[in-house]
Amino acid sequence: MADSSLLSLAVADGSPAHYGLVELLAMAGERLGEEITPRTVRLYATEGLIDRPGKDGRRAVYGQRHLLQLLLIRSLARRGLSLTAIAPLAACSDEELLEQLLQLEEPPAHQVSRESMDPSSEEQQEALAYLHSLQSERSPSLLPLLGSTLGSSSGSPPPRRSLFPRSAGRSSAASSRWYRFSLAPGVELHLSELASIPPAGKRREAWLQRLVTRLREQLSSND
């Protein structure tokens, strides 16, 4: 994937033409410094955040506008904006899309990372630790606050407007997303969006069992 992205970069600049999905992903990935998966693009298209691609025979083709939309969506999403909030911004004219992107580039996007790296004051640490303890206290109803991919694949109500985790539950602002679940006071489970969770039933049980075994091994090796 990464290799093909690099190869197709050659097509990127100056060509007003149409790109295939791979090229689009490569160009966006290069500018954003993160890997974008085809699944992400399809999701954005289904949600109406980016325009539907054109057709060249059976092949989907993308243009400059799709690229701008994708860049804007990812830039805003990385700042923590939800897709619903981004949707109207991504529906603007090409000029406005470009303008928004330029604006976003001006003040460097350090706001999100500031949360994790700021040598924050003692007071801030204390307030955050306190809120964290409140969240941990109430694990059963924490799910709605946090990630949704797990919920949607485990048969709970579909995440109506929650394609992204709330930032309260996000443990890292890096490009791959993590969902955080509090299992008991002081115990958290972090799940990457890339983790594939077997469907409910025997396979899921076996998977959970393997996790428990793994955890047990970890704990006894630390003893």
Binding site: L81, P88, V112, R160, S162, R166
Partner: peptide, 29 residues
């Protein structure tokens, strides 16, 4: 509502439009 959404994470109010666009998407249920 029954779920919580951080529509706009805390940030300086440089461009009220960013907030306003997000606010306009709020619906009920």
């Amino acid at each position: 509502d029954d779920e919580v959404k951080v529509l706009v994470p805390s940030q300086p109010v440089r461009d009220p439009l960013l907030f306003i666009s997000a606010i306009n998407t709020i619906d009920a249920g």
